[in-house]
């Protein structure tokens, strides 16, 4: 039951992820990314990581992707390809090289990994208390550093978005 459900969700996730890179329309492509992130949350639920699943939807599917869509809609992007001519073929070539390199890396990793049964998760694993405990003890420093990084980003965005003040005569 659990394994069948996982396989179904995982297959759908891959299909949605393919939709992101293959669909020519930017809005549809972004929507496929929303579906992908939602299905990833479903995978997290199947792995008992409820907290991460909820955060995945709140932060990625619910907030960041809305901003993506917002920008795409404001710029009114349609189906045209921004890159034309020779430059386009160079970019395609580079993408192929990068993709093949990633695929080889992944294959080597999978060959070297040992797949055993993980055993069942302890009670409360992946709940709010367990995640919070590890976040505020073992990973306190990275957590705080990330929050400072985000704060800097927020301040930067506010400064950039401010109305341009007229240059004063001095």
């Amino acid at each position: 039951m659990g394994a069948a459900l996982f396989l179904l969700v995982a297959a759908l996730t891959v299909v949605a992820a393919l939709g992101v890179i293959l669909h020519p329309n930017p809005v549809k492509s972004a929507l496929f990314l929303v579906v992908t992130l939602f299905l990833l949350a479903a995978v997290f639920v199947l792995l008992e990581a409820h907290m991460i699943a909820a955060l995945q939807i709140i932060v990625y599917a619910g907030a960041i992707m809305v901003l993506f869509l917002f920008v795409i809609m404001l710029l009114n992007l349609r189906n045209d390809d921004p890159e034309r001519g020779r430059r386009r073929y160079v970019l395609r070539g580079l993408a192929w090289i990068g993709g093949v390199a990633l695929a080889i890396e992944l294959a080597l990793l999978v060959r070297g990994a040992s797949v055993g049964s993980a055993g069942s998760a302890p009670a409360g694993y992946g709940g709010a208390a367990a995640v919070a405990r590890s976040l505020y003890t073992d990973f306190l420093l990275p957590f705080e550093l990330t929050s400072i990084l985000l704060l800097a980003a927020v301040v930067g965005a506010v400064v950039l978005a401010q109305k341009q003040r007229r240059p004063t005569l001095s």
Binding site: M51, A54, L55, I57, I58, A61, G62, A63, A128
Partner: peptide, 8 residues
Amino acid sequence: LYVLAMSS
């Protein structure tokens, strides 16, 4: 969190 996720 579930409620916030769905409402988002």
